[in-house]
Computed example of a mutant assay.
Amino acid sequence: MRQFPQTFRKVPMPPNSRSLIMDLFGEYLRYANQGEIRLGSLLDLLESFEIERSSARVTLSRLRDEAWFTTYRTGRETVYRLSDRMQEVLDKGRERIFTRVDDEWDGWWTQLFYQIPEAKRNSRETLRKQLTWLGFGQFASSTWLSPRQEDKRIKQLQGDFPEASMAVLRSRTTELTSDEELVSRCWDLNKLTEDYQDFIKRYSAMEGGKLPEGQGALKTQIELLADTRRLTFRDPNLPIELQPKNWPGREAFELFRRLHFRLSMPATSYVESVIGAVVTDW
């Protein structure tokens, strides 16, 4: 019997159940019934992953309190809808997962320096996660590099972290070997290469066989999305000149897109049968 990751096991709900709920909304639920779903239908769908209704209610209530959702009542039923903030998060995440640009490089680096007061330690950690998600690499404790011009995104960060003092420089080295040394210092591409190769080995074998249908297609699609997201958010998507030899990022991306396409119809049909609503094309 095939083993699914911990996300799909019996309660108590693991920490990554949040990612499961986000993937269900990001892939299906926000495209059905104008982005609204009744709590009962949502609980039915989570039961497909062997998550008990009582535990799911607790988690969804917490996510609502954290402004993931807005809710209203219609009769005795509660209706959930993603907040505007979470819609934006899902839009950005989807763009990152489903878009890959292997472009040429102009040779310039963006250097970001920041200072955050010690009393705002949590903000410092959140900013570091945001920088990693945006493709920056950590050169020193408060110095991050990107091989792309990131003025717009840095302005957004300045608005999101007003407590941080930021400075930005554009710079370049004198030769490509120095750039390659910067890459090796800022990103652990050896480990990422290994993880990409494991992804390709696992999902290539799946692609060569008969794919599941119904509930199995949904579970496989969500698992595929979760594995891809974990790799994508660690991948700085470097320009071609800075990529290691035989870099597997593009191969893994194309494999993901092919499998996602093949699983989309049976997985979506299963979701529609559970929630009783049509999922439109995104």
Rank of each mutant, 00 (worst) to 15 (best):
F25R: 02
G26R: 00
E36I: 13
S48L: 09
L29C: 11
G35Q: 05
E27R: 08
G40Y: 15
Y28F: 15
I51F: 11
Y31I: 02
E47T: 12
N33S: 10
E50T: 09
D44S: 13
G26I: 01
G35P: 02
R38G: 15
D44T: 06
G40E: 15
F49W: 10
E27A: 12
R30C: 04
A32H: 01
L46Q: 07
E27Q: 12
A32D: 00
Q34V: 09
L45A: 03
R30E: 00
E52D: 14
L45T: 01
L42I: 02
A32F: 00
L29M: 10
G35M: 02
I37M: 09
L42V: 03
G35H: 03
L46H: 06
L29W: 04
L39A: 11
L43V: 13
Y28A: 03
R30W: 01
S48W: 03
D44L: 10
G26W: 00
S54Q: 13
R30K: 13
I51E: 10
G35F: 04
E52V: 08
Q34M: 10
I37W: 04
F49R: 02
G40N: 15
S48K: 08
L43T: 02
E50F: 11
Y31E: 05
R53N: 09
I51C: 13
L42K: 02
E52H: 13
E36D: 10
L46S: 05
S41R: 15
S48F: 07
L42W: 01
G26Q: 02
R53L: 09
I37H: 04
S54Y: 13
Y28W: 14
G26Y: 00
F49A: 14
Q34H: 15
E27S: 10
L29T: 09
F49G: 06
F25N: 00
R53I: 07
S48Y: 06
F49C: 14
F49M: 08
L42Q: 01
I51G: 10
G40W: 14
E27Y: 06
L39V: 09
D44V: 06
L39I: 11
I37C: 07
S54H: 13
F25I: 04
N33Y: 05
E36T: 13
E52Q: 12
S41L: 09
L45P: 00
I37Q: 06
E36H: 11
L39R: 14
L43G: 03
F49T: 06
R53E: 15
L42N: 01
R53P: 08
G35T: 03
Y28I: 03
Q34W: 11
D44M: 10
G26C: 04
Y31V: 05
Q34Y: 14
S41F: 09
E36L: 11
L46F: 07
A32G: 03
Y31T: 00
G26P: 01
G35N: 03
I51W: 13
R38N: 07
R38V: 06
L39W: 07
L43F: 05
L46E: 01
E50G: 04
G26M: 00
E27G: 01
I37N: 03
N33A: 11
I37T: 12
G35W: 02
R30L: 08
G40P: 07
S41I: 08
L42D: 01
A32R: 00
R30F: 01
I37K: 05
R38M: 09
L29G: 06
R38C: 05
E47C: 11
E50Q: 10
I37P: 05
D44K: 08
E47M: 14
L46M: 15
Q34L: 14
L29P: 08
R38K: 12
Y28V: 06
S48V: 11
F49P: 05
R30S: 00
